[in-house]
Structure formats: structure tokens, C-alpha cells
């Protein structure tokens, strides 16, 4: 019974739309999908870990509107991103481009892998190295100890 109730309650759950106001969306679903796709890659400058599609900030709403205007004008994603970067810099892109400034950022997984790999290699070598063979004196002492 409880399960049935819970299932019934699920009927009332509405999906979390990226934008809060349906009037923002473009009439053409294909264009709207493109605008969402582009907006998801752009950082909201106010709440900085959200994309402009996810953010409720005023500035994000304005930027969503601009993205949609440009989509309707038939611009490509690269053109729209360039428009944003010109005003807000590479920081507006949630996926920063690879350049001299971001080299360390993009290279950090490789650096971490390298450090980890070298550590593992070093530990392995030290643990699997075979002990030095016994010297003559040690051999003699061993055999004398082993004698009944």
C-alpha cells in the first residue's frame, strides 16, 4: 500500500528544468536544444561553479537570453563562445582551452600519474630485490649450525 502511495506521489514530481521561466525558451525545440547545449558550457560569473543554464542569477538569465538571440541569428557554437570570451575571458568557459596559461591545469593528471607511477615503481624495486648471496664465512657458520 505504502509503495503504491509512493509511486502515486512520483507522478507529481516535475523534472528540474534548467531554466526557471518557460517563456525564456525558444519556440523551436531544435534551436532551444542548441542554446542549452551552448549555455551548459558557459560559466555563470556570479555563482561561479554553475553554468548559465543552471544558474538563477540575474546575469546568467541575461546571458541565456543573449545566447538564444545569437542562436536564432544562426551563429555557430564557436562564434557564440568567442563572443562571450571577448567580454569575460577564458574563465567564462567551463572547459578552458589548452594554452600556455592552462598547460599546468591540463597537465596535472599526467603529472599525478607520473608521480604515482614512479612511487609504485620505486617501492616495487626495493621490495623485490633479491638479498645478496651468503659470503663464505656465513656459509660455513650456517653449515656448522645446521649440523646435528
Amino acid at each position: 500500500m505504502i509503495r503504491a502511495w509512493l509511486l502515486a506521489l512520483l507522478l507529481f514530481v516535475s523534472p528540474a528544468w534548467a531554466i526557471s521561466d518557460p517563456s525564456e525558451a525558444l519556440a523551436d525545440p531544435a534551436q532551444e536544444a542548441r542554446a542549452v547545449e551552448i549555455g551548459k558550457q558557459l560559466r555563470c560569473l556570479v555563482c561561479q561553479n554553475e553554468s548559465i543554464e543552471d544558474s538563477g542569477a540575474d546575469l546568467a538569465r541575461d546571458l541565456r537570453k543573449i545566447v538564444r538571440q545569437h542562436v536564432v541569428a544562426g551563429e555557430s557554437e564557436a562564434e557564440i563562445t568567442a563572443w562571450m570570451v571577448k567580454r569575460y575571458g577564458d574563465f567564462v568557459r567551463l572547459k578552458p582551452p589548452l594554452n600556455l596559461l592552462t598547460l599546468l591545469l591540463w597537465g596535472s593528471p599526467l603529472v599525478a600519474l607520473l608521480i604515482g607511477g614512479l612511487t609504485v615503481l620505486g617501492l616495487r624495486r626495493s621490495s623485490t630485490s633479491t638479498p645478496a648471496p651468503l659470503s663464505e664465512a656465513e656459509k660455513r657458520r650456517l653449515s656448522s649450525l645446521m649440523e646435528p
Partner: peptide, 11 residues
């Protein structure tokens, strides 16, 4: 706020 966006104003 359109001119603000042209200037890159964030707040």
C-alpha cells in the same frame, strides 16, 4: 544591463 555585459561587468 546590456552595456554592462559589453564591458564584462559581473556585478
Amino acid at each position: 544591463g546590456r552595456v554592462g555585459i559589453e564591458w564584462g561587468v559581473t556585478g
